[in-house]
């Protein structure tokens, strides 16, 4: 049964990933990413990481991709990218080669080693117990508990018979509490940084530097930007010049 769920979720994950890189429209890419994220959440569930599955949907699919879509919609970046233009000659075959290389290397390591390359020993201090089958409200019958290795040996106070989130919380607030506090600080810094970066700039802005677009098309880009005096969105002629670059 887990195999069936794995095959279906894996299929949708790969489908979403291919949709992400092959869609011309960024909004379609974002929606394919959501499909992939959902599939990965199901795979988390398949491995008894329920809290992570829920958090994956809430944070990744429900907030991060929403943020992406906001930016795409508000900035109007949804003009479709012309995928047939290659800025650097031979970029695409090399990228494909790199991708295949990465894939072959990782699969080789995984397939060759035993246990899928897991070289560590089983954890003694932070055991992850199969939480569903040993949840306190279900009477654990024989067939449910006999295939959880080491569950009866580890007596880390109260770690058995705990739902997944309890184990996660206990480890997070005892062993990893320092990292937890640091990530709290990180989030605060990120919020402050984002608010600062996204503010409308006050006063005169420096003139825009000339950009040299190293593309296979249109050599007319070096003087296409007029200085912006007040930080408004680029005036019409700039947008027109930019769009002629794109469509050349």
């Amino acid at each position: 049964m887990e195999l069936v769920v794995f095959l279906i979720a894996g299929f949708f994950a790969i489908l979403g990933a291919i949709g992400l890189i092959a869609s011309r429209n960024p909004v379609h890419s974002a929606l394919s990413l959501v499909m992939s994220l959902f599939a990965v959440a199901v795979l988390f569930l398949n491995q008894d990481a329920q809290f992570l599955a829920a958090v994956q949907v809430i944070v990744y699919a429900g907030a991060i991709v929403v943020l992406f879509l906001f930016v795409i919609m508000l900035l109007g970046v949804d003009e479709s990218e012309d995928l047939s233009i290659e800025p650097i000659a031979g970029q695409r075959p090399v990228a494909l080669l790199v991708g295949i290389g990465v894939l072959v290397l990782s699969v080789f390591f995984v397939a060759v080693s035993a246990d899928g390359g897991a070289t560590g020993a089983e954890s003694l201090t932070a055991p992850k117990v199969d939480s569903i089958t040993q949840s306190s409200t279900v009477s654990a019958t024989e067939q449910l508990t006999d295939d959880v290795p080491g569950a009866d040996d580890e007596q880390v106070d109260g770690a058995e018979n705990d739902p997944n989130i309890n184990q996660l919380g206990r480890a997070l607030f005892t062993d990893y509490v320092f990292a937890f506090e640091v990530t709290a600080l990180l989030l605060t810094i990120a919020v402050v940084g984002a608010v600062l970066l996204a503010r409308k700039p006050k006063g005169e802005l420096a003139p825009m530097p000339d950009i040299v677009v190293r593309s296979a098309h249109s050599p007319s880009s070096t003087s296409s930007n007029s200085p912006d005096g007040d930080g408004e969105v680029a005036p019409a002629d700039d947008a027109a010049a930019a769009s002629t670059e794109e469509t050349a």
């Binding site: 049964m1 887990e2 769920v5 569930l45 398949n46 491995q47 008894d48 329920q50 199969d130 569903i132 089958t133 949840s135 409200t137 279900v138 009477s139 019958t141 067939q143 449910l144």
Partner: peptide, 14 residues
């Protein structure tokens, strides 16, 4: 083999 991850705590699935 029962499907372990979503067996949950519903007594239907014990």
């Amino acid at each position: 083999s029962l499907y372990r991850p979503l067996v949950a705590v519903d007594p239907l699935f014990t």
